[in-house]
Computed example of a mutant assay.
Amino acid sequence: MNSFTKRGRQCFAALLAAGLLWAFPSLAQGAEPGVSAECAVLISGETGTVLYEKNAYERHAMASTTKIMTALLALEESARAGDPVVDITEEMVAVEGSSMGLQAGNRLRLSELTAGMMLASGNDAANACALFLSGSQEGFGALMNERAGEIGMKDTHFVTPSGLDDEAHFSTAYDMALLTKTALENQDFEDIVKCFTRQVEFLDPAGTVSYTNHNKLLQLYEGCIGVKTGFTKKAGRCLVSAARREGATLIAVTLNAPDDWDDHTALLDYGFSMMQSVAFDGAQVTARVPLAGGSLDSVQVQGAAGEIRSLPAVDAERIERRVLLPKFLYAPVRAGDKVGQVQYFAGGKEIYSLPVVAAESVPAAEKKEPGFWQRLFHWDWA
C-alpha cells in the first residue's frame, strides 16, 4: 500500500480545495519570553518544531536530567525482558549524591527501580540500572551513546548514568528535548514522570516505599506531565518539563537556570499561545478499489473520522495529507477491514494518521461447475 490510486489522488485534491483541513487560533499569541537560563529550548512534542531557543545547540553539563536516558533504556529493556528482578549489590549503591535509599540485598523489579530513580533522582538507582543492564558504567555509557545516535542527539556524549559531573559528559538543550520527545512516546515512561507521588514496590524486604517527585511543576503548572530536575555545581539548575493541553504536547529544557520554575512557566505559556486547532478527518475520503476474485469487481472504501488537535501555528499552516490505498484487493473483504491509511505530515514528519476501511462486505465469487467442453479437455485418459 505505497501508492495513490487515481481516484484517491482526485479525492485528496478535492478535500483540500473544499477546505476540510482547517485551522484557527485558539489563544492570543504572546510575546517571546525572557529566561534566566544560560541555554533553553521549547519544542512541539508532536513535530519537534523549535518554538523558542536560546543557546539551544551549545554543549553544557545536564546533571540529573541525564536520568531521562537511563530511564528510557531501563524501561525498553523491562518491556523486552518481562520486567526482570534486580538484585541490589554493594557496588550498585556505592555512589555519591542523591539516593532512593537502596541497600545491598534489596530486590525489586526493573520498572519499580526506574520509578524510584525518576521521582527521588536516585544516583544509586541509576547506577543499579547501569550495572544490571551492562555490567559496568562504561558499557552502559556505550549503550546511552548508541541510543543517542539513533535519536539524533548530535551534540551529546554520555559518561555517567546519573549525571554526575565529568568533562566528557555533556549535551545541549535541543538534544535533551529530542531525547524527551522520544521518551514520552514510551507510555511507561510518561506514567512514571507525571506522578507527583508514587508507591514503589520492593520484593525483598517485601513492602512499598512512597517517593515524592522533585518536579514542582507537576503541581504548579496546569497540564504538566513531567519530566526531570537536575543540579550539580558545574551544571547549575537544570530542568526538563513537558505539558499537554488540548492534545498538544510542549517540551521545555533549561540548562543552568537560576529561576527555572519561572522560566518553564513562561516558556510553556508562550508555546501554548502559539497553538492552532486543526481538524484531522478522513471521513470524506471515499474511493472504489479494484477487487480480485470477488462477487463485485471493486469495493467501496472510506477514511475514518478523526478529531481536533492543537498544533503550533507554523506546523498547522504547512500540513500535507496523503491517502495511501492499494492498487487492488483480494476477496473476500469484510466491512471495517483496514485497507489503507490517511497520513498527515508537517515539515516532512508524520504527525497523525487514520485508517481507511472497507465500507461494505464483498464475498468471494462463487465457483462455477465446469462445462461439457471444459470437462472433456481436462479428462484423465490414463
Rank of each mutant, 00 (worst) to 15 (best):
Y174T: 07
G294R: 09
L131S: 02
P25D: 09
V356N: 06
L133M: 11
Q10F: 09
G149F: 03
P355T: 10
L184H: 10
T249L: 13
I351A: 09
Y211W: 03
A81F: 05
E185Y: 03
L21H: 12
A128T: 08
T197M: 12
T49R: 00
E317S: 13
D191S: 14
E53Q: 14
E96G: 08
A331I: 10
E76C: 02
K67E: 14
D380K: 15
S273I: 12
T70K: 04
L51W: 00
F231I: 07
A313C: 13
G306N: 08
T66M: 03
S136K: 05
I68M: 09
N127C: 12
S36Q: 08
L133R: 00
G105W: 07
P290E: 13
G152A: 09
T212C: 14
G282K: 07
A14N: 10
M117L: 11
T180Q: 11
A358Y: 06
Q300L: 15
T5G: 11
V253A: 09
A287R: 11
D263A: 11
R237Y: 13
G306M: 10
K67H: 04
K216E: 14
P290A: 12
N186W: 04
V342R: 03
A252L: 10
E46P: 00
D263C: 12
G19T: 03
S295I: 06
E90W: 10
A382T: 12
V299N: 11
V86N: 02
G34Y: 06
L131N: 03
A115T: 09
L143P: 02
T114R: 05
A335P: 00
T208N: 03
L217E: 06
C195I: 01
K338E: 15
D124F: 06
F372R: 12
L143W: 03
D337C: 02
I308V: 15
L296D: 11
K194P: 00
G371T: 14
I308M: 14
S241N: 13
A266Q: 13
T197S: 14
L218E: 07
I151W: 01
A304Y: 05
Q374M: 11
W379Q: 04
L376H: 09
D83W: 07
A79H: 02
D315W: 13
L203F: 09
R245L: 13
V159E: 04
S361I: 04
C238E: 05
R309V: 15
L217I: 07
S162F: 00
W381M: 08
W381H: 08
F24Q: 13
G152E: 08
A243P: 01
V339F: 03
D297W: 05
A292P: 00
